[in-house]
């Protein structure tokens, strides 16, 4: 019965060929450092799930952002867990993605034929940092407010158009409700869209080219 259902689905969805291409392929023997990529993907998915859950209660305005987070922490069942995972997931993700980059670099995995995989990887690393930077402001507490004030000041040091860059980041000359709402938008729409698309290309290239091997003395 199950087999019949599977066959019916397979005929239409091509499950067997997906299995053959994606899972049942041969790859060189590798070590534990090669799990960092999948760990990054896993953490991204965790951030996605907990992030979506947080938006159920979070309100991105200076009036209510702080109170709504307080409500998540104290008023909602398991709110502390969801936010705790999201908070620590961000830290771990930055760490794991950075280590993944270092592994790729030290094993020379960015060289032919994986140059584009590397490029997409750099985009993912920068997007992850961007997620960290934008997400940091959202609780609208002292720490996040002042960190973002300083953080958005940094591009302002660029000669000639620095102030313009700061104003673009802040949505005006001061850190305000506009800053909060644009950081929120970037945090939950722009960057996740970029990350999802780039992960798609990244994975496609990994499957197409295969994971790199551990270089030996002849390489």
């Amino acid at each position: 019965m199950l087999k019949k259902l599977f066959n019916w689905l397979d005929e239409r969805l091509g499950l067997t060929s997906i299995y053959n291409v994606v899972l049942d392929r041969k790859v060189p023997k590798v070590n534990w450092f090669f799990t960092l990529g999948s760990a990054s993907l896993f953490l991204f998915l965790m951030q996605g799930v907990t992030g979506i859950l947080l938006t159920v209660y979070y309100v991105p305005t200076p009036d209510h952002a702080y109170d709504s987070i307080q409500y998540i922490m104290n008023g909602v069942t398991f709110g502390w867990l969801i936010r705790g995972i999201h908070h620590w997931g961000a830290t771990l993700m930055v760490l794991v993605v950075f280590l993944h980059m270092l592994r790729t670099f030290y094993f020379g995995a960015y060289k032919y034929p994986r140059e584009i995989t590397w490029l997409t990887g750099v985009i993912l690393l920068l997007s992850t940092l961007g997620m960290g930077f934008t997400g940091y402001l959202l609780p609208w507490n002292q720490r996040s407010y002042w960190a973002t004030t300083v953080g958005t000041e940094i591009p302002g040091t660029v000669p000639f158009f620095g102030q313009f860059l700061t104003n673009v980041l802040r949505g005006g000359s001061d850190l305000s409700a506009l800053t909060l709402s644009r950081f929120f938008s970037v945090h939950i729409w722009f960057l996740p869209a970029v990350i999802l698309g780039t992960i798609g290309i990244h994975l496609y290239l990994i499957i197409r080219i295969g994971i790199s091997h551990i270089p030996d003395k002849d390489d």
Partner: peptide, 9 residues
């Protein structure tokens, strides 16, 4: 926990 989180209020 997520179910509790969504339903609790």
């Amino acid at each position: 926990p997520a179910i509790g989180y969504i339903l609790s209020p």
